[in-house]
Design a protein around this nucleic acid. Sequence first.
DNA 1: AATACGGGGCT
DNA 2: AGCCCAGTATT
Length: 319
Amino acid sequence: MVSMSSATDQLNDTHLHQVRTRILDWYAQNARKLPWRQPDTTAWGVLVSEVMLQQTQVARVWEPWLAWMQRWPGPAELAAAEPADVLIMWGRLGYPRRALRLHETAKAVVEHHDGVLPADPEKLLALPGIGEYTAAAVSSFAFGIPEVVIDTNVRRVHARIFTGDGAAAPSLTAAERRLAATLMPETTTEHGVAQANTWNVATMELGALICTARAPKCQECPVLDQCAWVAAGKPEPTTVAKTQSWNGSDRQVRGAIMGVLRAQGAIDVVHLQATVEATGRLGRHVPEDTQWNRALNGLVADGLATLKHEVLALPGTEN
DNA sequence: AATACGGGGCT
DNA sequence: AGCCCAGTATT
């Protein structure tokens, strides 16, 4: 394993320039024509795509993004929507709290930014559901501000090419931020700024299409002969992220309840029992009372479900 | 620094 | 049966 400091030490201008050029050229030839990359996409549309893409793959976001933008083209339209409709429209994208945060952001943009999404990454960061990655991504992709964009793809690509590791560390480190900043093209000219923004998306694209987490397509990689990880014989990653269990988890139960609520066309839990009985079952996993109540109370507390009337009997909770 | 938080697709 | 995914917020 090569340490981060020695990796940056061996970065000479020629090597870095070649890596940049090859990845930028590769992107020019291989970029996917994603709907949110169309030139007429608004900054708001870019934000919507980025929020949907948080922990959700491109293939699953494609159609929902199109339908969403058709229904709510801008922050004003979304701000005027009912939270229940927003959650139902979110569908099965996962992590439905993202939909709620996006709705809150739309309202904040209307209220505090004259209905115009700000370009400043710090202002974006202050909006709900927008963190370090999304703020930088929207600034760079939608507004052409050369922020350093670091997502899971970028981290893996940098780790392999420059550090020689098969995978990035479990969480983003200061060393990774420094390296990523060092790798950005100079932004002293207008052309440099444009190149820096393309560098951001090109590195992400390389990670998504070629330098994938499992079974990377190294034979098709434009920087195969400049990759520190390949040069080291592609050693297996030392750190393996532990996977969170799913079967029987609260998340599974919460997700199943949300599925029933979407199917009934309303997020109020008053009719939940009737819906569950009418549709047969909640899912494969039948929760115990305590877990059912914990999940339901959690959803209500999170604003993902509403309790407009007192619920007299929930499935399995009648005494 | 750890943990909670969906859901589906791929190996 | 794991592993992974254009992360964020909370503890």
